[in-house]
């Protein structure tokens, strides 16, 4: 039972209900002991990630992990890292940034000052990408970006602004396809531990911990960007977060979701119009 691959886990046939129970108890324990509420996260990928932690801790069951983390905070921190999938990239989905330049930036130009909320910013790649875009469009000086995530340790990395050098080739291609107007390499210097991005890019960025499940809105924003975060939530929790965003946007405020997400089927569907459907850019209308 010490295999690291959850795929190869030997699980008793017919044990699925027991496993569901163990998973529910674990999430309940995590919530009561540490306050992190994963109870309404989409179960399929949650289960995979919990099993990954079970194996990495060299345990045999989900209950074993529950016992361990209730008594040991360090185990909880490791699980938290597993549960918040932090995979991200600079200029991920370049066409999204093209649409942002064409359809959102002109709106920003009409405001004397813009507040942008990037919810679930992970290690910051998306924030630096947006900052670059806003700078190139000449609206960065008048903007403030609030970048939040549930996970404090990814925020630290975001503040550092050092990203793997071996990714720069991919990011450069993304940047060009995203409509970048300069040489991408102008934005970073190669340091021994990676590509250090210009500090000026985060001059107007505030990084802060915020939990979309349990924390409230903290301001009104002209634009909210929340990409590839809600795919990890169950429908009911998604609706809750949509409520939070709706409250935080003025009329004509803009909501940006990930390529594979949509507000269709959410109770707020009729409150927005599509600014660009393919890119999942919406504008609040009522």
């Amino acid at each position: 039972m010490t295999s690291v691959e959850p795929s190869q886990s030997a699980r008793p046939a017919g044990g699925e209900e027991l496993e569901d129970l163990e998973l529910r108890l674990l999430l309940e324990g995590v919530f009561r002991r540490y306050g992190f509420d994963f109870r309404e996260y989409a179960p399929a990928s949650l289960r995979r990630r919990v099993w990954r932690r079970v194996h990495a801790e060299r345990l045999g069951t989900i209950s074993g992990l529950t016992e361990k983390l209730l008594h040991d905070e360090a185990t909880m921190e490791r699980l938290l890292l597993d549960l918040s999938v932090n995979v991200t990239a600079m200029f991920r989905d370049p066409t999204f940034y093209v649409a942002f330049r064409q359809k959102v930036v002109p709106v920003l130009r009409t405001h004397p000052f813009t507040r942008i909320w990037v919810a679930g910013c992970s290690t910051g790649e998306e924030v630096y990408s947006l900052a670059i875009l806003l700078q190139e469009e000449g609206v960065y000086e008048r903007a403030r970006i609030y970048a939040t995530d549930i996970n404090e340790s990814v925020l630290d990395r975001a503040r550092g602004g050092v990203f793997p050098l071996e990714k720069m080739r991919e990011y450069t291609q993304n940047y060009i396809r995203a409509g970048g107007t300069r040489a991408f390499s102008e934005y970073y210097v190669a340091a021994y531990d990676g590509a250090q991005f210009q500090r000026s890019l985060i001059e107007n960025v505030v990084f802060a911990q915020h939990n979309l499940v349990s924390d409230r809105s903290f301001n009104e924003f002209h634009v909210i960007v929340c990409r590839n975060v809600m795919i990890y939530f169950e429908k009911k929790l998604q609706d809750h977060v949509h409520g939070l965003f709706y409250e935080s946007l003025p009329t004509f405020g803009i909501l940006a979701l990930g390529h594979k997400e949509s507000i269709r089927f959410s109770p707020f569907e009729d409150r927005y119009e599509e600014l660009d459907n393919g890119e999942k850019l919406y504008r609040k209308v009522v």
């Binding site: 795929s7 989409a42 399929a44 995979r48 995979v87 795919i231 594979k260």
Partner: peptide
Amino acid sequence: LVEPGSFALSLDERVQFARPSIDVLFES
């Protein structure tokens, strides 16, 4: 990924260098 009645997507790490991973689909 498969949930009862609907699909879910995730950006989890590649499994065996693959995303989408067949293991992830089949296991879920």
